[in-house]
Amino acid sequence: MGGFRRYLLRRLAQAGFVVWCILTIMFLLFKLMPGDPTAIFVDNNFTEDMIQRQRMLWGLNDPWWVQYLRYLRNMLLFDFGHPFFQNESVAEIMLDKVRNTCLMIVPALLVSVVFGTLIGAYAGWTRGSVFERAAVATSLVLHSVPSFFVGILALMVFSYQLRWLPPGGMVPLGGPDTLWGMLASPDYWKHLVLPGLVLVSREITGPILLLRSSMLEVKGSDFLDMLRAKGLGEGRIVVHATRNALLPLVTYVAVMTGILFQGQVLLEIIFAWPGLGRELVQALTHLDFPVAQAALYLMALVTLALNLIADLLYGAIDPRVTYE
C-alpha cells in the first residue's frame, strides 16, 4: 500500500496547490475591485474618522502581504468574517446555504444516478431495441437543451398555468429550518418537485449515455460467455455486466456532483431556492464581497474535493488499478 500512500500524498499536494492558486486569484480579484470596499456602505453621514476606524478594523491599512497572509489563514480556517448587511457570521450563512443547495441537488442526484443507471444499463443490454433508441435520442435532446429554459417552461406550465406546484422557494416563511425538520416537511418536498425534476431531466442523461456505452463495451467481453457457460442465470449475468459497466460511472458521478454544486446557480434563481448560488448572485448584486468570496471559495473547494474523491474511489472499486 506504499504506492497508494505516495499517490494519495501527491494528489493531496496537487489539490493543495490548486486551492492556493485559486485563493490567490480570488485575493487579487477582490483587491483589484475598483474603489474602496468601505465606500459601498458608507454614506455621506460618515465622518472621515469613522471610515478610518472601519478600515483599521478590516485591516485595510496593513501592508498587502500582511493582508494576504491573514486572508489565507482566514480562508483555510473557514473564518469568512461578517457580511456587510447581515448580523450572522458569513460562515453561519454559508453553512445554511450549502445545506439548502444540498437539499436540492442530493435528491436529484440520487434519482438521476439510480434511474439513469438502470435505464442506461438496460438500453445497453438490449442494444438495437426501440427502448435503446428512444432512451438515447431523448437523452441527447435533454442533454443539449439549456436546463434553465426547461426550468422556466416547467414553471410556466405547472405553477402558473396548472397551478399544481408552488412557483418557488423552499419552505414557506416560518416553516421548519433544521435539516430533519425540512426532510419531514411535506412543504419542502412539494417545493422540491419542480426544480428537482428539471435537474433530473438534465443530470439523468449522463448516467444513461455512459452506462449504455460502457455496457456495450462490457457486452463484447469474453467473460460474459464464460458466465453463461458455467450455467449462471440471465439475472446474475446482468449483475456481472452492470458491475463492470459501473466502473466509469463512479468517477463521473463525483465529477458531476461538483459541477452541479457550482452550476445550479440558474435553477436556484429561477425557483427562488435559497441556496449557495442564489446567495452568491445576491451578494454580488449588493456588492457584499465577504459573502461572495466565501461562496466562490466553497464552490471551488467542493469541486476539488469531489474530483479527488473520484480519483480515489476509482482505485477502490477497480481491482486492476495499481499505484505505481
Binding site: F17, V19, I22, G263, L266, G277, A292
Partner: peptide, 22 residues
C-alpha cells in the same frame, strides 16, 4: 499542465459572475 489543473479547479459560472460584478 499545473496551469490547466488550476483552470479546471475554478468554478466557472460563479467565477465569471464575480469578475463581471467587479
Amino acid at each position: 499542465m499545473r496551469l490547466t489543473d488550476v483552470a479546471f479547479g475554478i468554478p466557472f459560472l460563479p467565477f465569471a459572475l464575480v469578475v463581471i460584478a467587479m
